[in-house]
Computed example of a mutant assay.
Amino acid sequence: MIDMKKAGEWLVGTLGLEVAGKPIGELLREHWRLPKKTVHLLFQHKEILLDGSPAAQHTRTAEGQEIRLRVCQPEPLGLEPVRGGLDLLYEDDHLLVVNKPAGLLLHPTESHHHMTLDHLVAGHFSETGTLAKVRHVHRLDQDTSGAVLYAKHALASALLDDLLRLRSIKRSYVAYVHGHPANERGTITQPIGKDRHHPARRRVTPSGEHAVTHYRVMERYRQAAKLECHLDTGRTHQIRVHLSYLGHPLIGDTLYGGKAADFNRQALHAAVLHFVHPFGGEQMKVEAPLPSDLKRLQETLAEVPRRT
């Protein structure tokens, strides 16, 4: 990985020994895993410079060379900015991680297109002078809270999308469920598809897409449990469907058999993002603190004494 800094419309870095001697085109495609189309356009428009001179695909690199990529050209935000209210967990030249509150849609839909997390990120970009399109890397359900990753330029978006495809972006969730799973740890491997009887639901079905959820019991209460969940796949409603299939639906998730009681959303929070930074190679761990409603739920569950 090469540490790259933003300088106007360019990303600038210094090549290390590990990439010395490689053709620059090979370096971009295989080391950085850039899409072929992206690499072709960068060379075509002379937007790859080595020590200040335009490079060709076959130009060989050397240790200590300065590399410049013109990938931060001004772009329209793509939607109306809404300022204020953004809970920012991490930000640098290439990406940012935002803590999404429960109840807020992540991106505009046909029926809801005025106030979403994307609009708040657009507002942050507007306030900070970031002239970039709003690009979320992954999604969360409207009533799930927690960490969401955004890319700040097209190159970062391509690299982060590739990390997501390779399952190299690890997401850890905290879930509060009804009942007690039989095992302290487990893996649910069941395909998930649409429910033809209910357009908003998904279900376990042999014709569905491959889906894998790992879970670990963190705490047990009298009639509920707190789980940590990790995903190998990213199917719609995956954790909700799999935990319901296990017989332990999320508290508040009435769509999948959970009971609302005094909690009116699924008790699910995207707590931690783990990934290798695409520029520089640092091991990133970004945590989203538990929101106040889940803190209150946990306190309530812990107050009810367990039967001995």
Rank of each mutant, 00 (worst) to 15 (best):
E127I: 00
H198Q: 10
I192S: 00
V217K: 04
V148M: 06
K170R: 15
S157K: 10
L164H: 09
L131S: 10
E228W: 10
A158G: 02
K226Y: 00
Y173Q: 09
T213I: 08
P191F: 07
N183Q: 15
Y150M: 01
V148Y: 04
K226S: 03
L159F: 02
H178R: 07
I169G: 05
E228R: 14
V204I: 12
L140C: 08
S172K: 14
V137L: 11
L164C: 07
V174S: 12
V217Q: 06
A132Q: 01
R196I: 09
Q142I: 11
H230S: 14
P191R: 05
L227S: 02
D143W: 05
D143K: 08
R216T: 11
Y173P: 07
G129S: 02
L149Q: 00
A182Y: 07
D195V: 01
H210D: 14
G208C: 07
R165S: 11
S157M: 11
R135I: 02
L131K: 13
L164Y: 02
N183K: 15
R201Q: 10
H136P: 11
K194T: 02
H153R: 02
L227Y: 01
H153E: 04
A156L: 00
R165Q: 13
A224F: 04
S145W: 02
S172Q: 14
K170N: 11
A147P: 01
A175I: 10
S157V: 04
K133M: 12
S207E: 12
H198F: 07
